[in-house]
Write a protein that binds this DNA or RNA. Structure first.
Length: 122
DNA sequence: TTCCTGACTCCAG
DNA sequence: CCTGGAGCCAGGA
């Protein structure tokens, strides 16, 4: 059956969901972090936070490279660290930027949090 | 084609 | 604070 092929074809208007995620992620200032949900909400699909994480999966394949280490879950936990080259790479990258990590969680997360809807508000 | 999984989040208890 | 269930979209078997 043809299913909903026409939808997929028309879905490409200006930029795909992934590319939007990459752009936002690249805007994250050094020493700051944000969450999957924040990005998803900024793009208008709050419930699609999982897709943001999925997009991060191919973050290493796009150009320029996306700082996926600056994207954590809503609790500031480095849930995606296991997907990096090494489980500690994500933490090391963040600490190098001035962010402290304790027990796989961003210290003072609320203060380091960078909200795209707020900072990128047009 | 269907079924399962996943770098999430919200809601209820 | 923790646990379980539902919603979300995409990709692999």
């Amino acid at each position: 059956m043809a299913k909903k092929i026409q939808e997929s074809s028309v879905k490409q208007d200006s930029s795909s969901f992934f590319e939007d995620v990459f752009e936002v992620a690249r805007q994250i200032p050094k020493g700051r972090v944000t969450s999957y949900g924040a990005i998803a909400a900024f793009l208008g699909t709050r419930k699609s936070a999982r897709m943001v994480g999925w997009a991060m999966n191919m973050a290493h394949s796009v150009h320029p490279k996306v700082p996926a280490q600056r994207v954590v879950n809503r609790n500031g936990i480095l849930t995606g660290k296991h997907h990096f080259a090494t489980p500690v790479l994500m933490q090391q990258l963040l600490e190098k930027e001035g962010i402290k990590i304790e027990n796989d969680t961003v210290v003072d997360f609320e203060n380091k949090f960078w909200d795209p809807a707020k900072e990128l508000a047009l």
